[in-house]
């Protein structure tokens, strides 16, 4: 678990931060552009996988499996809880849409430039799903790296 050579380390440091930012952008604009929680979570998880491959020893100290699995369970519980909050009308009811609260702005019909403060619970669900997917895929990489990684 020594990590990779200097070249791989420098290049991965140059890649990781833009990849994390791009993943957060995809999650945050899930209700406006193609993409969303699953896709952005996969991008964040691939950035963390590059981090794990390049800096094996330091990275497995920084990314702890207990913390990641706790975050994953909390995100899944938040997703389910958010869907239960709409139970006044039905399961998974979008109770924040058109309400004037957070993400509650109405959208005009037809093509429009897109407003970030719209879509009700969809951005929150995107956030929870993105957190869950990124933590889940990172846990898979971390577990396999610890169990079968190079033992030198």
């Amino acid at each position: 678990m020594n990590g990779s050579s200097v070249i791989v380390k420098v290049v991965s440091l140059a890649i990781i931060l833009p990849a994390l930012t791009f993943g957060l952008y995809i999650i945050a604009h899930g209700h406006l552009t193609p993409g969303g929680g699953f896709q952005g979570g996969a991008i964040i998880a691939s950035a963390l996988a590059i981090f794990l491959v390049a800096f094996a020893k330091q990275a497995s100290k920084t990314l702890r499996k207990n913390l990641l699995s706790a975050l994953e369970c909390l995100a899944l519980l938040g997703f389910i809880g958010l869907s239960f909050l709409g139970l006044g009308k039905s399961f998974f009811f979008n109770f924040l849409a058109n309400s004037g609260l957070i993400f509650g702005q109405a959208v005009p019909f037809g093509p429009n430039p897109g407003f970030i403060n719209t879509a009700g619970v969809i951005p929150l669900m995107n956030f929870f799903v993105g957190l869950e997917v990124s933590c889940a895929l990172t846990i898979i990489v971390l577990t396999m790296l610890k169990a079968g990684g190079d033992k030198k």
Binding site: G30, T33, F109, F115, T118, A119
Partner: peptide
């Protein structure tokens, strides 16, 4: 109008 989301695919997937 109903889901207040420009991305109709996202409103189907999450709503």
């Amino acid at each position: 109008r109903e889901a207040a989301s420009n991305n109709v695919v996202a409103s189907i997937v999450f709503d």
